[in-house]
Design a protein around this nucleic acid. Structure first.
Lengths: 165, 165
DNA sequence: CCTTGAACTCAAGTTCACTTCAACTTGAAC
DNA sequence: GTTCAAGTTGAAGTGAACTTGAGTTCAAGG
């Protein structure tokens, strides 16, 4: 690859919308790669822009950095996603989004059922107790799946929401 | 109020499902109040359980502690929510949930539209760029509202997801 | 050569909603 | 009177995903 095909940091930040610090962070985390100029400055292949678009999309779906790294790493040859990869992955994300939507709808349904009852009971009101905390882990659809429960800092939990840095 | 009507910490933790540390945190944050025993231990009025149920429900909808404090504070007389309060509030939350659902559906729609295109363009692909970052703040529905965008740590952003402590 | 702005590194800071820890004290039962 | 679970405090830690800051260097133009 010709050195003239490599992009400097300013180009990447402008075209991806990510801050330089975020780009450096992603490189440190192994999500993207960079070449170096003679003086030690980063020079990026054009394909990095595509990976960054992928990262943004993934993070909008709520994937964590680690999950994104896995997802990128599962691509055969660790390459930038092709059209076929993207189709497979987006089906996967679609399911995830479907789950999140269904969960919010269950919560909404519980809320609608509660309007008028005014109970807000810790034991029986599904809205204030979507996990049925006191129910000894009973069966039945839970109102909120883990992906939408509060990702508890110390116990392991799932992701955040999408970015628009 | 008779001292025999006041509940000790263990009762509150068992019946609310919150950890003692969380209860203390909520008190420090001004979401709930506590009396003290002669020796300095917390003694709670029964109504605190109701406030805690409210807190759990609110946090499941994605409100932050600050928003919950505001919401509780807006109650006339700063009292525990009554049935009527709850109806008003739950309509408000219903709208919020509707927004979140609609946002996820837009994102899902964008994803469906993208399956097969394989573009993932930083400029035009709505999925990888739901905020239209390069669009000079153009009009039109945004795929993700602020409540679902990644709440950026340092810049001010909106909430987290629901809890099941 | 000088200036200017972009880039570099590395450590430390940020936010949120709590938890954990250490070192004590209370309160109720026996 | 002894025991021991339950409770207290304040400070510090947690995790994710970056940002900020300090101090230094690079690259390009004039």
């Amino acid at each position: 690859m010709d050195a003239r095909d490599l992009l400097p940091m300013c180009e990447i930040t402008q075209r991806s919308g990510f801050a330089a610090s975020a780009i450096r962070y992603y490189e440190a985390e192994g999500l993207i790669e960079a070449h170096r100029s003679g003086g030690g400055q980063r020079r990026f292949e054009r394909s990095v822009l595509r990976r960054l678009a992928f990262i943004r999309a993934a993070s909008n779906v709520g994937l964590t950095i680690e999950e994104i790294r896995d997802e990128l790493g599962r691509l055969p040859g660790n390459r930038t996603p092709t059209k076929a990869d993207w189709q497979r992955i987006s089906r996967h994300w679609g399911r995830r989004l479907d789950e999140q939507i269904a969960a919010l709808q269950r919560l909404k349904g519980g809320l609608d059922g509660c309007i008028g009852c005014g109970c807000l009971s810790l034991r029986s009101c599904a809205f204030s107790n979507p996990g049925d905390v006191h129910g000894e882990d009973g069966a039945g659809a839970r109102l909120l799946p883990d992906s939408l429960r509060r990702p508890h800092p110390t116990r392991r939990g799932a992701g955040r929401r999408g970015s628009a840095s």
